[in-house]
Design a protein around this nucleic acid. Structure first.
Lengths: 232, 232
DNA sequence: GGCTCCTGTTGAACGCGTTCAACTTTTCGT
DNA sequence: ACGAAAAGTTGAACGCGTTCAACAGGAGCC
């Protein structure tokens, strides 16, 4: 390839030609998705906008659906950036959960019109875009790590027997929020924001209550069940 | 239409020609879906199998996706039939929940290979097939009614302040089960069955615990939130 | 019967996502 | 520097879901 020999693998100004073509296609796709939505954006248009042939676009992306992965990566990074200030300053757990969730809702706002279409594709179990698929395992891991940060940086003490599973549980709850958001047609995602605002304190209280003897056995059962389900 | 004047609206032996064509198409579609899956079944093949032209199939069904509605209706009825014996004999709430859930899993078993594809379509918010859409409101209502029966016929007392919302909450929890089932690749849906078996007693215990003063306020808050979310 | 609607019915045609044989360019061992 | 293998690139072609102008038949009215 046109890369200088021995250069560092991915310097921003001089990406390999292949990498540049790749991101030109994603760039074109996202622009068009935003302008005309997912369904009304044709692969022919994406290729033309990126200055390549249709066949070439398919050399880099196995399908139109795969272009969405590029969107995910970008959105994930944007979310991180928007969530970091909250995680750096706020110590109250409920506020951290709310802050990180709202950060996500805000970064996704520009894409809301067509993001529903995306997540529907992701809902199909055989799709590599599914948040539970092995293909999206890296994205999932880093997303769960984000929720671990939410917990770790807070002043709330988590019971030992919950500590390991709780980040994943928060992530799962957040996936529920995303599902709600997808179906939420209210202005400015007001309903989703209400859901988050009202749910976050309940989660914190539930964590506190999970120490109570009446609940402890039940909660421990559920945590054990999750472990079982993952290994079955 | 060819219907005798003043005849009862839909006598089984002599359906109107239109209705017969309609169900011939659904019949053909389901047969082919089962044989070759959703994606590998073409509308041309469905039309041929039903003995009509492609255009005619589109006269009765707005899209290939709409054929799925026929599948839903059928599956819903089958589930009812399979659940009724449980509801008629069993009084223990956990057993009723498990029985009705397992009945669903069993009736859906033959369709599992392609049902995931269906539910993915249903996950798209704008789709009329979405369980939350206005188009599927009748199916949703009757499904919630089923879960009301589950509660009403049991010997468990439900706190007043929960009684109104609980059937819908059980339905919602069951939608979660369905989502899990869609992603469950285990033999005979073993993981989903484990989930149901272990979750049902927890639900019953949670209903009992919801009377406790420590929890009551929180649970009431959540119930109130649901009400708010629906009206916003 | 003749006329007008409305309900059905048809298959060719359209635009789409995707594939593929053919071609060009780059890489790399010698 | 050379040549073969690998990587990149092309657009016509395929099969699909879907649309639509055109046509057929029956119901109701005169």
């Amino acid at each position: 390839m046109g890369e200088p020999v021995g250069a560092d693998p991915d310097p921003a100004p001089s990406l390999s030609k292949a990498a540049r073509t790749r991101s030109a296609i994603i760039e074109a796709a996202l622009r068009l998705f935003r302008e005309k939505g997912y369904d009304d954006t044709t692969m022919r248009a994406v290729a033309a906008e990126a200055g390549v042939s249709v066949g070439n676009a398919y050399y880099y992306f196995a399908s139109k659906e795969q272009l969405i992965q590029g969107f995910y990566d970008r959105a994930g990074a944007e979310h991180r950036a928007a969530a970091d200030p909250v995680l750096a300053t706020e110590r109250d757990l409920a506020a951290r959960i709310m802050g990180v969730s709202h950060a996500w809702i805000d970064t996704m706002a520009p894409y809301r019109s067509f993001a529903g279409r995306f997540f529907a594709n992701a809902a199909e179990p055989t799709s590599p875009l599914s948040p539970f698929s092995t293909e999206s395992s890296p994205a999932r891991t880093s997303s769960i790590a984000l929720w671990r940060d939410v917990l770790d940086g807070s002043d709330t003490k988590v019971p030992r027997y919950l500590a390991d599973e709780l980040p994943e549980l928060l992530w799962l709850a957040f996936m529920g929020t995303v599902l709600f958001w997808v179906h939420d047609a209210s202005d400015d995602a007001a309903r989703t924001k209400l859901l988050v605002t009202r749910t976050a304190p309940v989660i914190v209280r539930a964590i506190g209550l999970s120490r109570l003897p009446v609940l402890r056995a039940t909660v421990a059962d559920l945590v054990g069940l999750i472990g079982e389900l993952k290994t079955l």
